[in-house]
Design a binder for these strands. Sequence first.
RNA 1: GCGGGUGUAGCUCAGUUGGUUAGAGCACUAGAUUGUGGAUCUAGGGGUCGUGGGUUCAAGUCCCAUCACUCGCCCCA
Length: 414
Amino acid sequence: MAALQPVRGTRDILPDEARQFRHIVDTGRAVCARYGFEEVATPIFEFSEVFRRTLGDTSDIVTKEMYSFTDKGGDDVTLRPEGTAGVARMLISGGLSQNLPLKLFYNGPMFRYERPQKGRFRQFHQIGVELLGVPEPAGDVEAIAMGAAVLDALGVAGNVTLELNTLGNAASRAAYRDVLVAYFTVHADALSEDSRARLARNPLRILDSKEEGDRRIVEGAPDFADSLDAESSEFFAAVRDGLDAVGIAYVLNSRLVRGLDYYCHTAFEFTTDALGAQGTVLAGGRYDGLVEQMGGPHTPGIGWAAGIERLALLAGEAPDAPRPIAVVPVGGDVERDALTLAETLRRAGFMVELGYRGNLSRRLKRANRLRARAALILGPEEVARGAVTLRDLDSGDQEEVALTALTERLSPYR
RNA sequence: GCGGGUGUAGCUCAGUUGGUUAGAGCACUAGAUUGUGGAUCUAGGGGUCGUGGGUUCAAGUCCCAUCACUCGCCCCA
């Protein structure tokens, strides 16, 4: 118990869970491919500056959650806390702004130094997409529809709700921020300690407070809609109209805000109440200013990310493992023949388990535990006749099959 | 970073007001069955009771500390 343990917030992924993870990633990749998205990979660590520049110095991720260290060459590097910054950096480093629009899918581990709890880990895994170079609201609609399609393909669509909001363009957001700060400053004495801190750092976040006292004050706060300029309102209307057109249901949530500074216009989250305190399953939004902020050319973007662990909790049982054929040598000196047979079948594309030790009974028991569909029993008599005994482990039927006819006869078990 | 809960076999757990040698089910190994699996029966292996200290004639049980896990807050996928 007090033996070697993995680092807090990290965990081992055993075969059953690994199969489920693979299923989630494969499903995400396949669904997104239908929208023309191709997989990319960026390094799992970057210069710390990449995240500091994009996430903003005030975000919690930067101030307390980054896994940063100095490497042997003296560089300040950070394990990526999310995927968008790395993709944006890739676009700049590779001069990919010549190839817009870019439609990218990625998956892999992310790292945040947090206290672990249900559905939250220090090393966790995400699938995500980024659509770069598309300023039109159609891009937002496509990204959201693609997220919905992934959740649907994973069978979790029934457990989630799509929440939608707009943060407006930069001008609207700044205007709203001013109005909001003015309002909350008046009521500062009544706000919780956390929210007073937010007032200076990230006032939009107060809207999302869970403190009851804060909520009463939030009730009377100015509405974002009143601060939206014409461009922002029209953009949001176009996104909603597009979602209606493709039949994707959503609820408007004016308190839905983003922790990361580079978001603008569309913000959305697919949420659930089945994961304890972690309600968000798949979330994203538009980030038109990000690439420019990192020193690249102005490049609009929209994307989302989904936590694989959270999807796995919702998706339930992993798909069944593939079922092998068991080669079972028995009696006499046939081990060598069994080895040859197993290898021949593997080269022909079959999944084959070889029984290593014990009597026939024991080896069949083991074949059964491996969920084998069939056993190929090979003893001196079969070897003498150039045949094997094929036993179907589901039905119990068995027959002798000549080696020359074996691959043909086994095709139903492939 | 802050608060609550829980630590007994590989897993799920029982263990009385502190009392002699710490148990069960599942799983595992072997046998009944040296050429027939799933079921059953029998036997067996497996424990520093998370760790360290304290109280006591006596601690799995009570106290303190510590570590881990877990749930929540903050924040977020």
